[in-house]
Write a protein that binds this DNA or RNA. Structure first.
Lengths: 354, 354
DNA sequence: CTGAAAGCGCTTACAG
DNA sequence: CTGAAAGCGCTTACAG
């Protein structure tokens, strides 16, 4: 249970071999200046030879570092509890690394308000964190923030959606195109040749919601590749209110009675489910996104058949851990981590820990 | 970046308030004997009041503890690379906790040989580990080992399969019954009323492979509950050689031409896929278990449609981390952790990190 | 450019 | 039953 006494490692041993003090060894280890090139090389050679790995616990303890990570993500809203899952993952990670002197500060913005994003971003920067986790929902605003973060050379992790070429440490989230293909594959099992399939995009900001179209592209690609000839229709709805969606949707369905499957490109699939339920359309296969309570309820009542889900909790958890691993030099951090694309049904949702 | 100087916590502060030495405080914290009831209570009161949490890093550093975890799992075999996934998860966890003085020792057994299990188990015990991770594939042999482990009061984690009432710290693995239900649900989307469905159990030790039957029960339950009247057939094959399986299977298929879907209750689904491919039966929906290379290949060629998978890598990872969290008192450990039941298809296998 | 000393928050003998 | 001292493997001023 005790370490063997004979081990000759650590800064002391290096200092002994190099004939210097441990202070100088420490300077070399951390690349601090004020060491002659000569002794530097001598020490580095010994470090190599001994394959020396500094004891992280001792280093942490001695340095008394206390780091703060700032996170900026959407607030949990009435409309959706989606963001509670990443938040839970973040909290779990925060609890695990608290003992290493990391504290996490939370900033939230309203998905309906770019202003709230900017305000929260300013507060975040004022708090002078040592690392940042960001869900960059508003693209332009995020890019402005990212620029400031870059000027401070702070490590930055994106979750949930990516911004290209932003020098961020890592992105952890979904690959949208492929999830659209998967949705198409699932639908393809259950439909006949003559059936039509409807894709529904619902967003108050359709123009900027390129995510939805990326999924739709993947969706169509699958049918193309598979040589399926089913007619694929698209319905873009620029509102999220039930009545508006209802009007649009019923219009489509009445002119296209052969629609046998609907793909909703985001978590608003519960709105469509509600409408289908109301009008007693049980025979239409419905598939959408995200493990939300509302969606799960329709999974149970079988109005929704499949939900595609990309581990929101794990995104938050891994985002924080990536910053931690980077700052504490625990391990390398991957530039992009694409989440598995999970399929949730009535028969496996119980064990999905989001 | 530095901790505030004014914080008055830690053993020193407790000692100061209680008017004792830090040695005595340490004795109380760790419930060691040799402290008068009086001072013990006094110190405990202060600990309560200060909500004192010992600094794990300092404690680890000072105690110079070096713990070894022993794992006993099946070796990766020619027949299946399944066990490479839990092993990878274990190795990942081992790398992460190495810095906390934990080393992991590996023992492997041959799934064809109970003898090899017993030999490896003996070696494991001789190495005097501080905690054990076990995949208890052989039930009786495992129970004997578990008894010895219990006598040594070592923490024990099961992965992959459970043994009831064994006082183990935790079980991390699948819930079989529900995965059978899921398989049935997936099949139900793609079949017609008149179609027959075949369940295939393949094992050299069918009698003791209660896992398979548990899945089959769940499978049947789904059809029952859903009021589906499809005829459900079962084929038990007591051999794993291709020719034997081929003979049995072709027999079934020729007498029941209405079979439109096959559920293989374990990872040997690739054997069935090979046979179906050989005999050009593309129209039968095939579903089975596990993210093995062989199985993925048939997923790609569309001979297999769905694979059900229960995160073998994560099982290994979580198993080790559970022991770590328990011994280092990081957090509570759950008695049973059921893995999510993942559905793998041609369109999402790329992002499944097993 | 370098060294010696103090200290991080604990644990561990040892002495009484 | 209790205390004083040394030490874990580092980092951090401070002095030269």
């Amino acid at each position: 249970m005790k370490k063997t006494e004979t081990e000759l490692t650590g800064v002391k041993e290096i200092a002994r071999r190099a004939n210097v003090s441990i202070g100088t060894v420490d300077r070399v280890i951390h690349n601090r200046k004020g060491v002659s090139e000569n002794t530097k090389q001598k020490i580095n050679a010994i470090i190599e030879e001994l394959n020396f790995q500094p004891n992280k616990m001792a280093s942490l303890l001695a340095s008394r570092k206390i780091l703060t990570f700032a996170i900026l993500i959407p607030a949990v809203s009435n409309e959706t509890d989606y963001w509670s899952y990443p938040l839970n993952g973040i909290k779990q990670a925060a609890a695990e690394i608290k003992q290493f002197g990391v504290s996490v500060k939370y900033y939230f913005y309203d998905l309906d308000s770019k202003n709230s994003f900017n305000t929260a971003a300013d507060e975040l920067l004022n708090s002078e964190p040592h690392a940042i986790l960001l869900a960059p929902s508003f693209v332009e605003e995020s890019i402005i923030l990212v620029k400031k973060i870059r000027d401070l050379s702070l490590p930055l992790a994106f979750i949930n959606s990516d911004l290209p070429n932003q020098d961020n440490l890592t992105y952890i989230g979904p690959e949208l195109y492929q999830s659209g293909k998967l949705a198409a594959q699932l639908i393809s099992f259950a439909i006949q040749k003559s059936d039509k399939v409807l894709t529904v995009n619902i967003s108050t900001d359709l123009e900027n919601d390129h995510h939805l179209f990326r999924k739709e592209q993947g969706f169509k690609k699958f049918f193309d590749d598979a040589g399926k000839t089913n007619e694929l229709l698209t319905l873009n709805i620029n509102e999220t209110k039930l009545v508006a969606v209802e009007k649009s949707l019923l219009g489509s369905l009445s002119t296209n009675t052969a629609i046998k499957a609907i793909f909703v490109t985001n978590s608003r699939v519960n709105i469509v489910a509600k409408i289908l339920e109301k009008h007693n359309k049980k025979d239409i296969l419905l598939i959408g996104y995200d493990f939300l309570k509302k969606n799960i309820n329709y999974l149970l009542s079988e109005q929704i058949t499949f939900l595609i889900c990309q581990r929101p909790k794990e995104q938050g958890y891994l985002g924080i851990m990536a910053l931690y691993k980077y700052l504490f030099k625990i391990s390398e951090v991957e530039k992009s981590v694409y989440m598995p694309i999970d399929i949730i049904t009535k028969e496996n949702y119980q064990f999905y820990n989001s």
